[in-house]
Write a protein that binds this DNA or RNA. Structure first.
Lengths: 136, 136
DNA sequence: CGGAATCCAGCTAGATACTG
DNA sequence: CAGTATCTAGCTGGATTCCG
């Protein structure tokens, strides 16, 4: 009865604003729906290292299929994160590069990657503990 | 033949380190596999506002099913992001709160949310342009 | 209230084959 | 090389029902 109505909102000061995030997700979901799939982040990371051709991306990202690479780059182009430059040569040559917006996204991803590196051991430990207690 | 071997790696200076990210994903995928699903981020955001009971979370996150709330909180507990405190009362009462690690994740998410807000209009524009050109 | 168990639809993504 | 097309398996998540 104590926590129900008078919400304790002082936990993470200034982290997630209340205003625009009221009921919806302030658009985070749009971004995470992209970042959440298996390949988008890897493509962005690879492109953050420089311009890449289709085949270069494919080789740089082990396990990706042509289909998924096509879909991923296409979606990133659609969202304005990646620019696609096709040279009408034979054989065809297509270059992909991050736009400015794409580069700023890469920076944001990098921040999340930093967080991952800092906490991955802690997470692994937590999982082991949990699995040990709940799996016996 | 010019871009093939001598990779141009100076695009986003100091954004994604080359070292530990060589072939694999430096653990970003572990995190994004969680964050990528429909509900995890919303649960974290809600918990960043304070301690919540199961029903409170359910009501605060429109559209989530009991099943997904259970699964999401359980996974977050397993990863050490959320602490679950069950009071053996009748009816039962269970509280969820972010751990310190969970709070730092909330901060990282907040950074991504900031990025989303800053660029969502730009993305929407890019999509409209793309759809207009490629859908005629 | 706070789940667990079961069943099922839809989408994602992998494999494969074909094309300009 | 850089895709497109098709077919399909598997997983995610929704709805429902039942339990302590």
């Amino acid at each position: 009865m104590s926590v129900t109505n008078t919400a304790v909102t002082a936990q993470v000061a200034g982290t997630i604003p209340d205003g625009p995030c009221g009921d919806d997700d302030c658009g985070i979901r749009d971004v995470l729906d992209r970042l959440g799939d298996r390949w988008t982040v890897l493509v962005i990371v690879e492109l953050s290292r420089g311009v890449r051709r289709f085949r270069e991306l494919e080789r740089a990202i082990p396990g990706i299929s042509q289909r998924m690479l096509t879909l991923t780059t296409k979606r990133l182009c659609r969202d304005g994160m990646v620019e696609r430059i096709a040279y009408p040569t034979i054989p065809p040559q297509v270059e992909y590069r991050l736009t400015e917006t794409g580069q700023s996204l890469a920076a944001a991803i990098s921040a999340l990657a930093d967080w991952s590196r800092e906490h991955k051991d802690h997470i692994a430990d937590a999982r082991r503990h949990w699995d040990a207690e709940h799996g016996d």
